[in-house]
Nucleic acid binder design. Structure first.
Length: 890
RNA sequence: GCGAGGGUAGCCGAGCCAGGUCAAAGGCGGCGGGCUUAAGACCCGCUCCCGUAGGGGUUCCUGGGUUCGAAUCCCAGCCCUCGCACCA
């Protein structure tokens, strides 16, 4: 092949990419029509518009875009939308730092980022773009809020917040700085130590859905295990029981325990400082009151074993004993019921407390005979034994297994089997400006009253810089009338957590312009769930749990028929540099902007997708990026060399038969790998095919038709990952229309292809070995001989035989006729243990003939392939099925 | 502490789920050769050890086990990463 100077064969990514971006635009390639039945819904987690893309974004969108483009070429209707998660603190901070308003700043950022996305030619359906900070969007947050309120999914509860006494405002966790002397942190503005204050806040009752959120995870096979596990941890399901204890105060106090089997060993009872009964005792007991005050206002954490005896007693329902009641800080108010019976012998914290307060430690469980521990080795006075076992010191229940005991004791002690979760209700109140106003009015007479639906959206007042919440300062905006009684009232000044915005945006994409409802229910029922969701692992719990919760609530309200929003989830790995996360603060970054400008978007995408599996972290390296760039230029050069007639074509001969099969094989491999999101493997197949076509042209005069078909296949397989370059190639090849909308190649690989390929690879490898080991400088002629028929026959027979294989084989006259050689071969077969599939002899011969050009080319020697029964005797003797005999002459 | 994922040749990274054509893809780096006035780009090959005919040896964190056969399955241990964690 004689290529002219490479300079004429290189393309300018900038020019090529913008050209095809315009062409896609004009052809409206990425728009999903409303009337399609059930498009493949491919979704990348929408970004917070910080203004600058980083490599994490690029990787995320490279993945969804590649998959979306692949599915489109497969003939699917595809929905691949993009939007902006545009409420949030950074805008407010920017507004406070410079003299801008959050809205203007946010919109500028969106413009910037969208420009960068467009520069990268990402195939989003921009007609469905949505922006959560627009009233057209957030009015539906407000609408949902009121609907949820009606349905009892919204509640007011108290929550502990960060309060700055100097600024007299609530602070978000992000605005609290850590300080060595103040465990609760200090104010970011005035450095005043933060106080924790209990305040009434709005909550979504996520706990109502805790069981379903937990249990459904088992069936969600399209999600990675680690994310499901993280959600299980987050929800924290605990199977246990609650049992009432009578106190000498006259109260009956419920405890929650997962170890009801140990109840006979309860030697004291403990209440959380915040527990109602503890508070009541404190009213008449100075010592208790002082303790509660101390733990509440401690500047440093109190010792874990701290606690105070109340002077009261609780009756252990198992033993009838009176055990002392303590108030102890290690008992947490929001875990279980905030009260527990303590079994020092079988719980580490109870044990530590008992030792510090000199309380009896009574063993009631000992290791079962099959346990790791020998009962004699367990000394509960020294350390708690926390495993299950057999009951002791438990009266009539001695010898019972822990699990059985738990079941029986629930009934025996009048308890309830209960499931506790560590999942809390979702506090959505934020004392911030840049979020969705909570659509409620507080009336001195009527209390909290929802803003009437027809008055939605409640829009934000103009932004002012203030120490606290700007909504609080907007007096005019705040004052309104009560929708119920018409009297003067004040608007709620809290806004919603921005996770509310992202909990349903995937539904809004279905009908982004709809003005009468948050989304079109019929269409959502057809289009949901999202077929493939892709984003960072950092959203494993919050966003992905809230979205699941929202979807279930909406289903229960009849708004959509769907209980899980995301069918398949892929969490992409990080893009690192020098082994560390990219970070602009340390300068350890590669910025997408300048990179794309220099190398083009395709190079970036190709490198990212070929470097590693999408879910794994990978290192960005200069060399790797360069190699992707070189590859694209290289393919471009090859295609142009062909179309400009620099590659002389002919009939290709037997080589052509080889190459056409490999073209199909490449397409088949790539298809399989795209289905599994293994772009790196798919690309491998493309790279191999390009290399093969190059060798084809180099070795002989290729048949134009198949050579071109090969280039066309390369182009198509490359199209999802390097879409601009692929369009340019498609155009160069003189194809009509756009490769973005072309049909994906369909192939059925001939049976036995893999075996044939292996035969070729192994034979080549053997010849290399021989040449190398025998020190053959320049081979003149290579003879390759397929084994005689009878060996194939013997081999097939051997596969079916058991027992005395040699004997049975030699009993077969067709085999026996070959005497000594047959006996040797039969012994080999018998010893093999496993016999792989092989091609029939004629097919081995044709396969080798087709591949012989590779040998000629590699060794620069004449290659002669001998069929099954036409080889010289010495060669045939060495040959076995799958392993031809080889002779090399110098 | 509980839970999840992982440890593969100089580096990165496939393979492991469905055990066997696996001394283990590919990329990067390195070495040799071709093309070229030269460089770059491109092309060909080599890159665990020994070996003058396709052989042998030792490998996929360590140690056991299952199997005719283990990078792949099982058990134990070591190390790494991540998530949850004063969760009764």
């Amino acid at each position: 092949m004689s290529e002219s100077s490479p300079e004429t064969r290189r393309f300018d990514p900038g020019a090529v990419e913008s050209k095809w971006q315009r062409a896609w635009d004009e052809a409206d390639v990425f728009h999903a029509e409303n009337d399609v039945e059930d498009p493949t819904y491919v979704l990348a987690m929408f970004p917070y518009p910080s203004g600058e893309m980083h490599m994490g974004h690029v990787r995320n969108y490279a993945i969804t875009d590649a998959y979306a483009r692949y599915r489109r070429m497969q003939g699917d209707a595809v929905l691949h939308p993009m939007g902006w998660d545009s409420f949030g603190l950074p805008a407010e901070n920017a507004a406070n730092e410079r003299d801008v308003d959050p809205r203007g700043w946010t919109m500028d950022c969106i413009t910037n980022m969208k420009e960068q996305m467009e520069l990268m030619g990402l195939g989003f359906d921009w007609e469905r773009e949505l922006t959560t900070c627009e009233p057209e969007y957030f009015r539906w947050n407000q609408w949902f809020f009121e609907q949820f309120y009606e349905a009892g999914v919204v509640e007011r509860q108290t929550a502990e917040l960060n309060w700055c006494p100097d600024c007299e405002t609530v602070l978000a966790d992000e605005n609290v700085n850590t300080h060595p002397e103040h465990p609760d942190g200090i104010c970011w503005r005035c450095d005043t130590p933060i106080e924790n204050r209990e305040m009434d806040q709005w909550f979504f009752t996520t706990t109502d859905y805790a069981d379903e959120l937990y249990d459904s995870l088992d069936g969600m096979g399209g999600w990675p295990d680690n994310v499901r596990q993280m959600q299980r941890n987050w929800i924290g399901k605990q199977e246990g029981a609650s049992v009432p204890f009578d106190l000498s105060t006259g109260d009956s106090v419920d405890i929650f325990t997962t170890r009801l089997d140990t109840i006979h060993g309860a030697t004291f009872f403990a209440l959380a400082p915040g527990h109602e009964v503890a508070q009541r005792i404190a009213a008449d007991n100075d010592e208790v009151a002082e303790y509660i005050h101390r733990v509440d206002h401690a500047d440093e954490a109190v010792p874990e074993t701290s606690g105070v005896f109340t002077g009261e007693y609780a009756t252990n329902p198992a033993t009838g004993e009176e055990v002392p009641v303590y108030v102890a800080d290690y008992v947490l108010e929001d875990i279980g019921t905030g009260a527990l019976y303590a079994v020092p012998a079988h719980d580490e914290r109870d044990h530590a407390f008992a030792q510090a307060h000199d309380i009896e430690i009574r063993q009631v469980v000992e290791p079962a005979p099959d346990a790791d521990h020998d009962p004699g080795d367990v000394d509960v006075q020294t350390a708690a034994y926390t495993a299950d076992g057999l009951l002791v010191n438990s009266g009539e229940y001695d010898g019972l297994e822990s699990a059985r005991a738990r079941e029986r004791f629930v009934e025996r002690f009048d308890g309830d089997s209960r499931t506790a979760h560590s999942l809390r209700d979702w506090c959505i109140s934020r004392q911030r400006y840049w979020g969705t106003p909570i659509p409620f009015v507080e009336c001195p007479d009527c209390g909290y009253v929802p803003v009437p639906e027809e008055e939605l959206p409640v829009e934000l007042p103009e932004f002012v810089r203030t120490t606290g919440n700007p909504l609080d300062a907007a007096e005019e905006w705040k004052s309104t009338t009560c929708p119920d009684c018409g009297g003067p009232a004040e608007r709620e000044t809290d806004t919603m957590d921005t996770f509310v915005d992202s909990s349903w945006y995937f539904l809004r994409f279905v009908s982004p312009e709809l003005e009468t409802a948050p989304f079109d229910t019929d269409r959502a029922n057809n289009w949901m769930p999202v077929d493939q969701y892709v984003g960072g692992i950092e959203h494993a719990t919050m966003h992905l749990i809230y979205s699941r919760f929202f979807t279930k609530v909406l289903d229960d309200m009849g708004l959509v028929d769907c209980r899980e929003p995301f069918e398949n989830l892929l969490t992409q790995g990080m893009v690192r540099k020098n082994g560390e996360a990219m970070s602009s603060s340390t300068g350890n970054v590669v910025s997408p902007g300048p990179f794309v400008e220099q190398y083009g978007s395709d190079t970036g995408r190709l490198f990212m997708l070929s470097a590693a599996r999408p879910e794994k972290d990978f290192d960005w390296t200069e060399e790797g990026a360069q190699s992707s760039y070189d590859f694209l230029q290289n393919v471009y050069g090859l295609v142009n060399a062909y179309t400009e007639g620099d590659i002389e074509t002919g009939d290709g001969g037997v080589v052509d038969e080889y190459v056409t099969r490999e073209i199909d094989a490449a397409a088949a491999t790539a298809t399989e790998e795209f289905e599994r999101f293994r772009f790196n493997h798919a690309f491998q197949a493309v790279r191999d095919l390009v290399s093969l076509l190059r060798r084809y042209a180099d070795h002989t005069t290729p048949r134009a038709e198949s050579f071109e078909a090969g280039l066309e296949t390369v182009t198509k397989l490359l199209a999802p990952v390097a879409p601009h370059t692929a369009e340019e190639l498609w155009h160069t090849l003189g194809r009509e229309g756009l490769v973005a909308t072309a049909d994906w190649p369909t192939v059925d690989l001939a049976e036995g292809y893999d075996t044939a390929r292996l035969l070729v690879e192994n034979t080549r490898e053997d010849i290399r070995d021989i040449v190398d080991v025998a020190g053959i400088e320049s081979p003149e002629r290579i003879d390759v001989a397929v084994a005689p028929e009878w060996k194939y026959y013997a081999r097939e027979r051997a596969r079916e035989l058991d027992g005395n294989v040699v004997g049975q084989l030699m009993g077969d006259s067709r085999i026996q006729a070959h005497g000594e050689a047959a006996a040797d071969y039969a012994k080999n077969l018998a010893a093999a243990g496993h016999i792989d599939d092989q091609l029939p002899p004629e097919r081995e011969a044709t396969t080798l003939v087709r591949a012989s050009w590779l040998l000629e080319r590699e060794f620069d020697a004449e290659v002669v392939v001998h069929g099954p029964d036409e080889a010289p005797a010495d060669l045939a003797a060495k040959a076995t099925p799958g392993r031809p005999g080889i002779r090399i002459e110098e």
